[in-house]
Nucleic acid binder design. Structure first.
Length: 780
DNA sequence: CGTCGTAATCTTTTT
DNA sequence: GATTACGACG
């Protein structure tokens, strides 16, 4: 152990050796936080802590795997095996397999991915007879997802007039019905979506104190990486579990918080010291990754953010080359510049392909890069985007496997009941859904009793349905004895799925056939891999869980030497010798969707900070003057982030271009205006640009619920500017409300996030409004 | 009931 | 530019 600890500097050693009590490590980019986490776990074990009692939550499963391997090298494989390590989602999915029965879920519950959830919501919207142009499935999905991440259950929603009003204001008054039906259908299908894995864990720990006690007792040491990106649901789980022993160590960097869009709450890290007594604070500020020029450039950009902790990231590394900025005419030219630069740099510096990364804001940008790299014969690999398991032919196979394991799985059933075509049409399926809802049974149960139920289906179709049931049941029998691989191999043949794909005879068909083959090989590898580990059996259930929660990063083929292409979000935690950040243009990066509030813009800036700090030696920033978007060539102008970098760190490869003067896009529209005007300024800007943007459905923040057995924490929501607003609204103010018109403020009560105002409106009488939800304009 | 062609909508970011 | 939704036709 000593030998390993000698690899740490003093700042890293201190938190590593801090064994007990709550602690927070504020770790700047490239400061070696993974190393600290790894050695800290090894150290705990060397001090006699049982691996069984350590829970370590990481941001990707890949990170967990790598840490585990490194720990195994220090303490031995058999010891490290008992560590609980993984993402929130995968760790709590495992726990829910054991404990889900308390909540009425089978242990083999299905995990719905985004596609499944959205399809289900789509059909619910249709069943309820709602206008799909108003109730857009994607928006409904993200709305419900945010409720769940804020722990707003259906019941809580129904009891919350503010929320209902917010939805009514966006012309979706029946959101609650959709939400209720969705939850109900998931439950009946024995399915949990991604958010449920956290929400249901919270439900489990709150409703069943004995279960909570069991896991509190088990996880005596808890470590959470990337704490700045935890959402409220995750926050509560950690708090509940750590409550007994308070041996909680969180690591993070507020400057790298980039997941607010999926509910991450930066206040979790900002307020950590208030949550526990005697919190030890450690800072890791020395960057070991990047050159002085890169660190300097990144620091000068992040300076523009107002919401941040005090932290000075510095480096003792060499100066290095300056950050290169390059302008091109089109996105195609941009790609060619990147490809030729990689080519040259490889030759000059003897670098391998895998030392290069191309990072972009949106997945769609990968195409131009791919084309250019392919022309130069530079091997590359795209991460993210449509992952392997999302492809149609793969999802089809998986759906069969899911259905075998959990016949209640409605989405899987609907997907495969007529693929390959068996003459079971849409009308038949619709009638089945109606019947299943009527009988309060699953579709599969209705199918099994198709002769007994009251349903308008002709006998020909009924026979086809019976055949389908027989087919699935034969698979279920086989699953009793066969391995997952044998079963999957049989399924693709027996269902005619292989034949169906073979029939196409197109090049795409060949690719899809190869994909299915690769999938089968994957199952084989998995089964063999699992069989080596004694306490797992390599069965179908484990494989499906792995698939549902695997990210593209997890399927790393270690042996290939290729340039990495990915979104900046996916690049978090990674590092590369040379990094290209492409598409640095207004409306793309920062994204056009993120310029309505300062907090959104600041998140974009943090994203840019993350991108820059991925580079060890050389960073390139590129932009194009026009680019294909939605199939059309669109003019663009350089991103404000380029200007924000201090000149001394920059080398303009192409002559610098002045940004066109556009007051609407000027860098500090959120700057030093009077506080009470802040919330309107962006809205007006949006109205002028595109009227549709003024309706900001996604912006409404939720009242956050805290279980009574936990300490109440400050829920002040910086991102909503409510604190600015609260100070300015006083009794006697005249205000304007979007629905109630003008009114006079009678009373102000409450604190922080719960601050309320009693207002007498000309139309609508006296109302009590939560200020963070009510969109009020002060007019006098 | 199934298939093929056209129309509409789409783009943030992910577990 | 690509995927999906829907309508006409076999």
């Amino acid at each position: 152990m000593e030998e390993y600890l000698s690899q740490l500097n003093e700042a890293q050693l201190e938190p590593t050796l801090q064994k007990d009590g709550p602690m927070i490590i504020i770790a700047g980019a490239g400061s070696g936080k993974t190393r600290v986490l790894t050695y800290r776990i090894a150290y705990l074990m060397s001090q006699g802590v049982d691996a069984f009692n350590i829970l370590s939550l990481t941001f990707t499963n890949k990170a967990a795997r790598e840490m585990k391997e490194r720990i195994a090298k220090i303490v031995g494989t058999s010891e490290a095996k008992n560590l609980w390590m993984g993402t929130f989602h995968s760790v709590f999915a495992k726990i829910l397999r054991f404990e889900g029965h308390h909540l009425g879920f089978p242990s083999n519950f299905t995990i719905y991915d985004t596609q499944d959830s959205q399809k289900l919501m789509g059909s619910i919207i249709k069943e309820l007879g709602l206008d799909k142009d108003i109730y857009k499935t994607k928006q409904v999905y993200s709305r419900i997802s945010s409720y769940k991440n804020s722990l707003i259950t259906v019941k809580a929603y129904m009891n919350n007039p503010e929320l209902k009003e917010a939805d009514a204001m966006t012309r979706r008054p029946r959101m609650g019905e959709i939400y209720a039906e969705y939850v109900d259908r998931c439950f009946k299908a024995g399915a949990m979506d991604f958010d449920d894995l956290l929400l249901r864990t919270n439900e489990l720990l709150t409703r069943f104190p004995s279960v909570l006690a069991q896991y509190q007792d088990r996880f005596r040491y808890i470590l959470v990486d990337e704490y700045q990106d935890t959402n409220h649901s995750q926050y509560l789980i950690v708090r509940a579990l750590a409550d007994r022993f308070q041996n909680i160590c969180v690591v993070g960097d507020d400057a790298q918080s980039i997941y607010a869009f999926r509910g991450a709450n930066i206040n979790n890290i900002l307020n950590f010291q208030k949550d526990y007594d005697d919190v030890k604070l450690f800072r890791l500020e020395q960057n070991y990754r990047s050159t002085k020029n890169i660190v300097g450039a990144a620091n000068s950009v992040i300076e523009h953010n107002k919401t941040k902790l005090d932290k000075v990231v510095w480096t003792a590394n060499e100066e290095g080359p300056k950050v290169k900025i390059h302008r091109s005419l089109t996105d195609g030219d941009e790609g060619r510049y990147v490809a030729s630069t990689i080519w040259d740099a490889k030759m000059q510096n003897q670098l391998s392909n895998s030392e290069f990364a191309i990072l972009y804001r949106t997945n769609a940008q990968s195409r131009a890069m791919e084309d250019a790299l392919r022309k130069r014969d530079i091997p590359y690999r795209i991460y993210g985007g449509l992952s392997f398991y999302q492809r149609k032919e793969i999802k089809d196979v998986i759906s069969y496997l899911r259905l075998i394991l959990n016949p209640a799985d409605e989405e899987a059933l609907k997907r495969v009941i007529n693929y390959p075509a068996r003459g079971i049409g849409q009308t038949t399926i619709d009638r089945l859904v109606v019947a299943a809802n009527g009988y309060k049974r699953t579709i599969f149960e209705v199918l099994k009793n198709i002769d007994k139920v009251d349903i308008n289906i002709n006998s020909g179709a009924k026979n086809k349905l019976k055949d389908f049931v027989t087919l699935i049941e034969s698979f279920q029998v086989m699953n009793q004895t066969a391995t997952a691989f044998e079963l999957a191999e049989h399924v693709v043949k027996a269902t005619g799925l292989l034949r169906e794909i073979n029939k196409e005879g197109t090049p795409e068909g060949v690719t899809r056939l190869e994909n299915v083959e690769e999938m089968l090989n994957g199952i084989k590898d998995f089964v063999e891999g699992q069989q080596e580990i004694a306490d797992t059996t390599g069965n179908l259930a484990e494989f499906l869980e792995d698939v549902a929660l695997a990210t593209d990063l997890d399927n790393e083929k270690g042996d290939e030497d290729a340039v990495a292409l990915m979104t900046i979000h996916l690049a978090k935690g990674l590092e590369f010798n040379h990094v290209f950040v492409v598409g640095l243009e207004e409306d793309l990066f920062p994204s056009a969707m993120s310029m309505n509030t300062r907090s959104e813009l600041e998140e974009e800036r943090r994203l840019f900070y993350v991108a820059l700090t991925r580079a060890e030696n050389q960073a390139y920033l590129t932009y194009a003057l026009s680019r294909y978007r939605w199939g059309k060539l669109v003019d663009s102008e350089p991103s404000r982030f380029i200007e924000e970098i201090d000149e001394q760190f920059v080398d303009n490869v192409t002559p610098k271009l002045e940004r066109r003067i556009n007051p609407m896009l000027s860098a500090d529209i959120f700057g030093d205006v009077e506080p009470n005007k802040i919330r309107y300024k962006p809205a007006k800007q949006a109205v002028l640009k595109k009227p549709t943007k003024s309706i900001k459905q996604e912006q409404t923040k939720f009242q956050v619920t805290t279980p009574k057995n936990l300490k109440r924490v400050s829920a002040t929501d910086e991102s909503n500017n409510s604190n600015l607003f609260d100070d300015t609204l006083t009794v006697g103010n005249l205000v304007k409300h979007i629905r109630f018109g003008t009114g006079e403020v009678l009373k102000i009560e409450g604190k922080g996030a719960d601050i309320k105002a009693e207002i007498s409106f000309q139309h609508g009488g006296v109302k009590k409004l939560l200020l963070r939800f009510a969109k009020l304009e002060v007019i006098g």
